[in-house]
């Protein structure tokens, strides 16, 4: 475990804490895309099928349980919590997430490291994670007043994979047992690039001390 990986995991964790904080304390999910949240739940469910069979470390297992539990409970909150669901911006969250799921699944069937049930699903989860933010970014562009918690949530979520890229570079040079992981790296780079535009406006609004607003 190097500092980049740890920092990546911590920003990922932070993003979820920020989102849960928003839902728990102000009982609101305004500006949050349910489509994206459902995609993340699917990402973690398909990626962490190994939770009961492969033990890497206590840290990994605990984190996997955390990501699985929180992603599913966030979807539950947005769909069923009688207060939270009222703030869900259904009319603007119209991206068809099925259009992302199907191509990712087909791609995982074609391009994978090993044609097994678990490996294909793992690969699918990487492809899907790379693009899962798209409905959220679309919703942000349609949202007039993006609140701080939502902006920070997306920022932490984007920073996480960017830090993982630094971790991969570090491991590539320092860990002789570390293999080439083309699928992971490519997906991670695509995932981070999707945030480029958002990062630009996020940092600009932060420096100018202005409210975050994405141009349409």
């Amino acid at each position: 475990m190097n500092i980049f990986r740890l920092a990546g995991d911590m920003t990922h964790l932070m993003s979820i804490v920020v989102l849960l904080l928003k839902m728990h304390t102000i009982k609101s999910c305004a500006g949050i895309s349910l489509k994206t949240q459902e995609l993340y739940a699917l990402v973690f469910i398909t990626r962490y099928l190994d939770i009961f069979t492969d033990f890497v470390s206590l840290y990994n297992t605990v984190m996997k349980i955390f990501f699985l539990g929180t992603s599913i409970s966030i979807v539950w909150y947005m769909r069923y919590h009688k207060v939270v669901k009222q703030s869900y911006d259904k009319d603007h969250d119209t991206f068809r997430h099925y259009f992302l799921i199907l191509p990712c699944f087909l791609l995982a069937l074609i391009i994978n490291d090993e044609f097994t049930f678990r490996e294909v699903l793992w690969t699918f989860s990487l492809y899907l994670e790379a693009v899962a933010i798209i409905p959220q970014l679309v919703l942000l562009q349609r949202t007039k007043n993006i609140d701080n918690l939502t902006g920070n949530y997306v920022f932490f979520l984007g920073a996480y994979r960017g830090l993982y890229i630094l971790n991969w570079i570090y491991r590539y040079f320092t860990d002789s047992h570390y293999r080439r992981k083309g699928i992971t790296w490519t997906s991670g780079i695509v995932q981070t690039l999707l945030y480029a535009d958002f990062f630009y406006y996020y940092i600009r609004s932060w420096r100018r001390n202005e409210r975050l607003n994405l141009p349409a």
Partner: peptide
């Protein structure tokens, strides 16, 4: 020999 794909990251 270890598996072709080991997933030790999250």
């Amino acid at each position: 020999e270890s598996k072709p794909t080991e997933h030790d990251e999250l």
